[in-house]
Design a protein around this nucleic acid. Structure first.
Lengths: 237, 237
DNA sequence: CGTAGTTTTGATCAAGATCAAAAGGAGTGG
DNA sequence: CCACTCCTTTTGATCTTGATCAAAACTACG
């Protein structure tokens, strides 16, 4: 829709972009891409950096091009919980809320295309297809959140950890080489913050999986899934 | 936007509708209302009835006019969890998924305006304002789901029950008469399915609140909050 | 080699699940 | 009006899971 208003040539950076066809940009043709490119700013952000603090004026949104981010919400007693993880192609930020409800922090060095929120909203006003894509994304994310509600409230620690590893494998190892091998982008304590478990319980469950021969831990934060079927079995329980 | 295409007169049923200004319809002017009214069907559905079964072809969507619905997702071991409650003005159904991921069931006798999904999507194609409203709603629901993720994974049973009662009071007692008095639209076992607790634990916590004088239980499923401050205190812990 | 951080392992404890049964409440029929 | 049944709620006793407290082992880095 609404193509060739100017030149229908994508900005060079965009045409080679890894997430051209999965991010918000996938709803835009080359011509429209120029417009969103004009308001965007490509930046690399190092691990640990905080993109958005809870309560911020919420001025920025972004497309995540590479890396992994965590979305953290603070409990009443200063106890943090990770309510979402963001992977390449995901949309970052809250388009409508005036102040940010969550803190967004970088886990792995990340590349982002950052847009001022107001400008992005203007672009969306003219691009219902892009807005529909955001709606679908939001509904998919809601679906995910509800899936985790089930896991958090009903599953045992062993099933939580198994589910988490399967989920991470699904999202990370296509990028890597061999199936079932990936590097966790987070510490044990962050895994605990995803699963609602203490660091000790996470560690014990991971060790139990290793002892049972279901996974291997070649060192650092890398994980190899040796027996996918048994891991899935533990996730179901 | 795009008003007076025909006569800018709202259908009589709509102009007196209790949720005219809060449901999806609030994004439509009187003229456009006629169009959505034309594809809609007003129905009353009795408690216990199931509107959508998990896995259904997902053909319908609706605006909830009165009553309360529950959105239920089945765990692996046939253990159900309530992942959402729907109140008057809320949108019911999944616009994009081809098969329903959740079962939707009526808790209190409910009035709905039901629309065929395909027809509704066509209306939305021409009404970006309505679609934007759905996007905002979806993001608000996501926010809610994430709030419950925190509660489910981090709070104790006593805090969960207190939080639940505060939430229900907020949503139900403005409709009723005296502040802090309302009828729970669900059984103890359904409360357990919201909070990830057993029926026994819910019962014990409710009893403890009554014994402490924080709430009163005049009979049936009605609840009176006697000490809002102390209830809030328990919810924070 | 030493220091600071993370991860693992161990011992104990408490919250909530589970199993079991009694008590309450609503509807039905005598 | 009472007796009976069915269902929900409450109460009680015990047991399991994961949290907590504590310390050792491992990693990375200067």
């Amino acid at each position: 829709m609404r193509s060739e208003r100017r030149t229908a040539v994508a900005p060079p950076r965009c045409s080679t972009c890894a997430v051209r066809d999965s991010a918000l940009c996938s709803a835009l043709d080359d011509g429209d891409l120029a417009r969103i490119h004009a308001i965007g700013l490509r930046r690399t952000v190092a691990a640990e950096q905080v993109l958005v603090w809870t309560g911020d004026r919420n001025a920025i949104c972004a497309n995540l091009v590479s890396g992994v981010l965590k979305v953290v919400r603070a409990g009443p007693d200063r106890q943090d919980h990770i309510v979402g993880l963001l992977f390449p192609g995901d949309f970052v930020g809250e388009l409508f809320a005036d102040s940010a409800s969550d803190t967004v922090q970088v886990l792995c060095d990340a590349d982002l295309c950052i847009y001022p929120r107001a400008a992005l909203r203007h672009v969306l006003d003219d691009h219902p297809a892009a807005e529909r894509l955001l709606l679908r994304r939001a509904l998919a994310t809601l679906n995910d959140a509800r899936k985790w509600m089930l896991i958090l409230s009903r599953k045992t620690a062993r099933a939580k950890v198994a589910t988490f590893l399967i989920d991470m494998a699904r999202r990370l190892d296509d990028a890597g080489a061999a199936a079932g091998k990936f590097d966790l982008p987070m510490s044990r304590s962050e895994i605990g913050a995803v699963l609602g478990l203490t660091i000790e319980t996470v560690s014990r469950q991971v060790t139990a999986l290793r002892v049972a021969g279901i996974i291997a831990l070649p060192g650092g934060r890398s994980v190899v899934i040796r027996d996918h079927a048994r891991l899935a079995g533990r996730a179901a329980a």
